[in-house]
Design a protein around this nucleic acid. Structure first.
Lengths: 116, 116
DNA sequence: TGCACATGCTAAGAAATGTTGGCATGTGTA
DNA sequence: TACACATGCCAACATTTCTTAGCATGTGCA
């Protein structure tokens, strides 16, 4: 993952996702090794519901990946791990990405695709 | 500015600041060249009040700098320009920064680190 | 069966952000 | 004086995001 590969919206999503203490810690914990949800929740000292929301956001942004596996006892465990990525942020790279931003607020109801 | 130079809180501030369409566009506009507030507001098509808030946040995060100057007519103009910075974001660099996070909300008033 | 453990979902309140509008200051010029 | 332009501030509303609590499912084991 390279900054220049991302559209403005994608970069925005990644930055929004990373800009959270909880999600930073979740990512940091996963860098140490993969873990399943309940395990991770205990490790971080937060509720599963909360962790799940953050994990989902991290996954949507492509920062972590998930695999559903069965333990020896036959229990379903959802393992997460940190996705490898490298982002080079500079004023220039951000300016480039910003040029492709499609902001609904600034976009007065026009169709993004097709006509312009 | 290097990712490893930043504390978790500083990185969080930078990311939070960048994670906004308006601020991305403001930064992008300043990459093209310095500009004063009213000028920039007209260029971006947003209100001065709104722009000022975003500029302030960008400045606090160290992403832009400001200089107060007098025009030929003697009017006070506040010029802003993009600050040069390079951030290398990787799971590892984020994990390192996350270790120094001081989050009041997630910090239940005690041990910074330790037992598990 | 009942308990411990895993997953998932959603409604709803709490908290943080974003945005607007008005009003203040000051300058130079017609 | 009145106008156009610059700066700044703040109160209040609107919106988004975050977080919790509760309930659902399923597994293995005593």
């Amino acid at each position: 993952m390279e900054t220049s590969d991302l559209t403005g919206d994608e970069l925005l999503q990644v930055l929004s996702t990373l800009a959270s203490p909880h999600r930073m810690r979740v990512l940091a914990a996963l860098v140490e090794g993969r873990a399943y949800v309940s395990q991770l929740a205990r490790h971080l000292g937060i509720s599963r519901a909360l962790l799940q929301v953050h994990l989902r956001k991290l996954e949507k942004a492509g920062l972590v990946t998930a695999q559903l596996e069965l333990s020896d006892e036959g229990k379903a465990l959802k393992f997460y791990e940190a996705a490898p990525f490298v982002l080079h942020l500079t004023p220039g790279s951000i300016a480039t990405a910003a040029a492709t931003l499609t902001d609904p607020a600034a976009d007065h109801g026009a169709a993004p695709k097709g006509s312009e």
